[in-house]
């Protein structure tokens, strides 16, 4: 255990958590509007390759991340059209979106295997970053780590304080009542889906441009599914989603460090530990069904059709 530095562990935890935090925040907004989009994994991987390709072609990581958001949003538009306009089943469509995204990204990514993308620079905080412990842990990251935290605050404030956020929550609570009051349920939900797609895309690009950084097929490796679980884990509350993402990121990093430190535990067991812990926490969280039911949007996954 001596080989593990707490400082380094905490610093890399924030990096490991950022992709799933982006994706989970986006999915949380989508679910708050009453839509269950299981295509997060597909949108992440699409964002990963779109961001990677744009960054490599233009040489600008910033343009890469913008491209990733657009790519994820574009894929989610398909989902929005299918589920909101053509009223297809959300679960089946979401799964299809994941499969499509995985295949589509592999197709585009064929020419990009083995290339190194332009580096995303860390922010220079000047002298402040020399503060022992706090400096390396909190102030040694690139802009997206902080953007993810700012996004958490933004989503929280949007849902809690703004009228648009109130309408979004209302649509997710009861689309029939919202429709009776004259709100455009389909439009609001589509907007939420596109927002979720853009954030999933950003999360995906963070994996391919910063965390790894290179392109390999299927490189998001289930992060989208973890993001979906985090939304339930966080009980549809932004700060709890952040907490969950950091917890999960922490376990991922810890098991890598434990492996590196040569702890005598089978590698396979260490690799599955983040998923095991996620399942464990989900089970504990959902054992109190009254509380879970309180926080879940009441119209989640239900198809809306304005019949009157």
């Amino acid at each position: 255990m001596a080989g593990i530095s707490i400082e380094l562990l905490l610093a890399s935890l924030m990096v490991a958590a950022t992709p799933i935090l982006f994706a989970a925040l986006g999915e949380m907004v989508v679910e708050k509007s009453g839509v269950l989009n299981l295509g997060v994994e597909g949108m992440m991987i699409t964002g990963a390759i779109c961001g990677f390709a744009v960054a490599v072609e233009t040489g600008s990581p910033t343009l890469g991340f913008i491209g990733a958001a657009l790519g994820g949003a574009g894929l989610s538009l398909i989902f929005a059209f299918l589920t909101q306009v053509l009223l297809s089943n959300q679960v089946a469509t979401g799964l299809a979106l994941t499969l499509f995204g995985l295949g589509f990204s592999a197709l585009i990514g064929q020419g990009y295997v083995g290339i190194k993308p332009p580096a995303t620079p860390d922010i220079n905080f000047g002298a402040v970053s020399d503060i022992p412990f706090i400096g390396p842990v909190l102030l040694s990251h690139d802009v997206l780590v902080y953007l993810a935290i700012a996004m958490t605050a933004g989503v929280w404030a949007f849902l809690k304080f703004t009228r648009a956020g109130l309408i979004l929550r209302a649509v997710g609570e009861s689309h029939d009542a919202a429709h009776a009051l004259g709100y455009k349920v389909v439009l609001i939900r589509s907007a939420a889906i596109v927002f979720g797609g853009a954030l999933a895309g950003l999360g995906g690009a963070y994996v391919s441009l910063v965390r790894v950084p290179q392109w390999t097929e299927g490189m998001t490796a289930g992060a989208g599914w973890i993001a979906l679980a985090l939304v339930v884990f966080g009980a549809w509350r932004p700060w709890r989603v952040l907490l969950g993402a950091y917890l999960f990121g922490g376990i991922t990093v810890l098991q890598l460090n434990l492996q590196a430190a040569g702890v005598r535990v089978p590698v396979e067991l260490l690799s599955i530990s983040p998923y095991l812990v996620t399942i464990l926490v989900l089970v504990i969280m959902s054992s109190d069904r009254r509380r879970v039911a309180m926080n879940a949007p009441a119209a989640l996954g239900r198809v809306f059709h304005a019949s009157s």
Partner: peptide, 8 residues
């Protein structure tokens, strides 16, 4: 049928 939102 009330057009109300229970969780709000």
């Amino acid at each position: 049928h009330f057009s109300l939102f229970e969780a709000l």
